[in-house]
């Protein structure tokens, strides 16, 4: 029994002290889950609480018209912006139930966002960070696991743009630091 305990402790120490583990996750040990959910003050997301959400503003116009609950509209001299908050949650699941994730990796993650399709007309932003389809933009480099973090999505539409449907997909990626 004592020998079993000794070998078990040695295994645990190996995992804790191993230099190759610091700063990185062991893919066979930890997994990250990124989910999006409606913010209490924002629009209702389709698929809230999952990793595949939808944000549908419906028909909107610069002057007058209806405004969805939880959405904000601001009108400038040459464009107008619609915005709404939404929540991001990144959780770390340890496949070794005896050890918490934080013993195997740093307690923070980086979150990036990238547009699926190029859009040279409108301006897409999350948390004040402009998004594009050429490279991922960093929203945070020190996110806290398990915390529900609110971000504001904003879309700026120029007056010069013709009426019609604007659609795109935002790809978010969380990476453990």
């Amino acid at each position: 029994m004592l020998r079993a305990t000794k070998w078990g402790m040695m295994a645990a120490l190996a995992l804790l002290a191993a230099p190759g583990v610091s700063g990185q996750c062991l893919p066979i040990v930890c997994s990250l889950t990124l989910t999006l959910q409606s913010d209490a003050s924002g629009m209702t997301l389709g698929g809230s609480g999952t990793s595949s959400a939808t944000l549908s503003f419906g028909s909107m116009q610069a002057f007058g018209g209806a405004l969805p609950s939880g959405a904000t509209k601001s009108v400038g001299t040459t464009n107008w912006t619609i915005s709404t908050p939404f929540d991001v949650k990144v959780t770390c699941s340890n496949l070794l139930t005896l050890l918490p994730c934080t013993l195997l990796l740093t307690p923070t993650y980086s979150l990036t966002a990238e547009l699926q399709t190029a859009n040279a007309i409108d301006t897409w932003k999350i948390g004040g960070v402009t998004l594009n389809s050429t490279s991922a933009s960093t929203l945070t480099s020190n996110g806290t696991y398990g915390a529900v973090t609110a971000y504001t999505f904003a879309l700026t539409i120029p007056f010069s743009e013709s009426s019609g449907t604007i659609s795109n997909q935002i790809n978010l990626l969380s990476v453990c630091n």
Binding site: Q24, L26, S31, M60, I82, V175
Partner: peptide, 28 residues
């Protein structure tokens, strides 16, 4: 697993958000 893999590949989580809005013309 600990010593032989060396630097392990970063664990990631991903999500997508599809956004749509129908823009109507307007005058003020």
């Amino acid at each position: 697993v600990t010593f032989c893999i060396g630097t392990a590949s970063a664990t990631t989580g991903s999500a997508t958000m599809a956004v749509t809005v129908t823009v109507a013309s307007s005058i003020s």
